[in-house]
Design a protein around this nucleic acid. Structure first.
Lengths: 232, 232
DNA sequence: CGTGCGCTTGACTTTTTTCAATAAAGGTGG
DNA sequence: CCACCTTTATTGAAAAAAGTCAAGCGCACG
């Protein structure tokens, strides 16, 4: 259906497999199957003993359960590149929910047995994936912590500190998302973000030039992020 | 220093190792070393080629980097049960930061070589850990998504739906944290949470009795969580 | 060269927080 | 088992923060 090259390229964009060596990605390509799923088609049902997990390359898949009275409760709707069913497959459990395409979708299927084989033959494979998941988990935890600060300046300060620390470039960094997206990420709207960035500049906490942000008064940023101070 | 029994018990409380079989936990106990770290003692430094990773059993460890001008930038302060250094170890990389105890701490050390050994001998070991990390990641992603809703009723609705779905108990669940803690989790304060819970009850979206919450009007809760509606 | 998007600013409205006071709930020791 | 104390939860009124709506600028792209 598709060239080998293009399959490997798709695999390399899957976050779970990011950072694997090319040869590991090639081996993944060898065991996986590309599938087209029609709109409305059920991919698996709750209780199915899964023989593999899936990755959405393109499309939209809903993961849902049925409640006691038969109503559909959507747990999650996938984004491109996301895996689904993998936690159950890794744990050797049955699928805990239903998966159904809500529009025509392209997915990759990784059979459990071949995947387990890969992992047992090459422990660095598993280690790599563990490393990736750990790192993402740490990152998300930090994000979730900062999002639970009650005021936007605090959330923004936490995020700025986080970025300027995780890239060790002398307190300057370049946003890799638009300010609109940053606003959404921080749980606010572009207008508010814009105003707060201006205030922080006026107060000489940071310097902003386009997407480039430089932290100046790290001490005050930390106070904001800790919630012990506020922006005048 | 401590009995084998107690060591295994400690291991079973480590989130990363949750759900492993008793025999797997025993094998972990055999390869790990308990260490007491004095206040102020450095556990590893940036650039050290790590020969293993750590888990804090009890105590407080700060993970930090030094900025270009020599100032300490704290990336993270551990909670009990958390691992640190594991992402680097799994990836076979050097430690990317410093780790220092900020009070007397008890940690478990897992040597890389023995750990890799365990994983390569027993692939279900790695699979289990992958399953745990995947599940936690999915959960945290959901949380982070709901936290980025701009208004508190939306965040609360998302959280209620999430809980009542993930425990399949017919729309009723019991909070396992206090409402004060829930408020902090949602990025607000107890007063606001209290008021919004009352409003949601008055509007017959939910029923609250102590820590027990029952979702009644799931449709409207979903609209709130999607931000497409608001609470009168 | 106009259209659209990202970003910013201002005036006004709504939501949330603060502060203060009070009520319930949970333990602890007598 | 009760009195006492602490923590947790709730409510009101005023202040502060954030959101909405509307308008305008600059820049990339067709």
């Amino acid at each position: 259906m598709d060239s080998k090259e293009s399959l490997i390229r798709k695999i390399s964009f899957i976050p779970l497999f990011e950072g694997l060596t090319p040869s590991q990605q090639t081996r993944l390509a060898q065991i996986c199957a590309e599938k087209k799923i029609k709109r409305g088609q059920t991919i698996f049902s709750e209780g199915d003993s899964g023989d593999g997990f899936y990755v959405v390359i393109k499309g939209l898949v809903k993961i849902y359960k049925l409640s006691v009275d038969g109503k559909e409760q959507i747990l999650h709707i996938t984004n491109d590149g996301e895996t689904f069913g993998e936690a159950a497959i890794f744990a050797g459990a049955n699928f805990p929910a239903y998966a159904q395409a809500i529009k025509e979708s392209q997915v990759l299927f990784f059979p459990r047995s071949a995947f387990v084989d890969l992992i047992s033959k090459d422990s660095s494979f598993a280690l790599n994936m563990l490393a990736i998941l750990s790192a993402r988990l740490r990152k998300l935890t930090t994000l979730a912590e900062s999002l639970s600060l009650k005021e936007v300046p605090g959330r923004l300060a936490a995020y700025i500190l986080y970025l300027s620390k995780s890239r060790n470039n002398g307190n300057t960094f370049v946003l890799d998302i638009s300010k609109n997206q940053l606003a959404a990420l921080l749980g606010t709207i572009p207008e508010t973000l814009s105003r707060i960035l201006s205030r922080m500049q006026r107060e000489k906490l940071i310097a902003v030039r386009g997407r480039e942000i430089r932290s100046i008064d790290i001490k005050r940023l930390e106070e904001l992020a800790a919630g012990s101070q506020r922006l005048s």
